[in-house]
């Protein structure tokens, strides 16, 4: 996995309700922003396609380190944008809960963690492409690796503050116990970062218009290796 998904019963009822409320508020903001933009049928289908690829990709085990499952959430953020990407990760979480990959009650907290990956992935990629002038691979890698690192730390913070049901450990001891999975998730996040970097480079070569919107505000073309290879 590229990050841990909490299962039902891990958090107490109060925290389950709290994170559902936070997720609902964030999804509400995303829907309000889409309503303001008057999202087209095309954009909606594109985001749905992104979500379906995210779910389908998860069904494949990548034979690295004994088998990994990826979520591709930062990539969905890069391709679909923050608002539609937010709806896409909620839908991915709904489907995931249906098949046992993360619980129903903790969809709220899992969605908040995934939303952070979408938003961080989107804004870091955009910043690196438009302001730092990094190439697509480096931007995609940095966006996904940083997003997944931050989300792994977020998981530690969320669980440390909320505590695990039935555990008698305090916040500090709980956080201490979670550093191992945080380190593991960060390691896997680096692999997903590499994968995201390759995918955006590939998409940039084959169908650059898919990245047009996120790279639009570039004033000067960055030193993109892919572009040089194509002579453009």
């Amino acid at each position: 996995m590229a990050h841990i998904h909490l299962e039902d019963g891990a958090l107490s009822p109060i925290w389950v309700i709290f994170w559902w409320a936070v997720a609902a508020a964030l999804i509400g903001v995303a829907m309000w922003s889409l309503k303001r933009e008057r999202v087209s049928t095309r954009k909606m289908t594109v985001a749905a396609m992104c979500a379906s690829v995210g779910i389908a990709a998860f069904m494949v085990t990548i034979p690295v380190f004994g088998g990994l499952h990826l979520n591709l959430t930062p990539l969905i953020g890069i391709l679909a944008g923050p608002a539609l990407g937010s709806l896409a990760v909620l839908i991915i979480n709904l489907f995931s809960a249906a098949v046992g990959h993360g619980g129903w009650g903790v969809i709220g907290v899992n969605t908040v963690v995934n939303l952070s990956e979408v938003l961080i992935g989107y804004y870091i990629y955009r910043t690196f492409r438009t302001r730092v002038n990094l190439n697509r691979f480096a931007s995609g890698f940095s966006a996904a690796a940083l997003a997944l690192t931050i989300s792994a730390l977020m998981v530690v913070a969320i669980i440390a503050v909320a505590g695990i049901q039935d555990s008698h450990l305090d916040e500090e001891e709980t956080a201490h116990n979670l550093w191992l999975i945080a380190a593991m998730n960060i390691g896997v996040g680096l692999i997903e970062g590499g994968l995201t970097g390759y995918i955006v480079s590939f998409i940039g070569r084959i169908k650059p218009d898919l990245l047009e919107e996120i790279e639009r505000s570039r004033e000067k073309r960055p030193p993109d290796e892919d572009a040089h290879k194509k002579g453009g």
């Binding site: 690829v53 990709a57 994968l195 390759y198 590939f202 898919l210």
Partner: peptide, 8 residues
Amino acid sequence: AGIFAHAF
């Protein structure tokens, strides 16, 4: 990456 990029 190639497989997922094609899929996207």
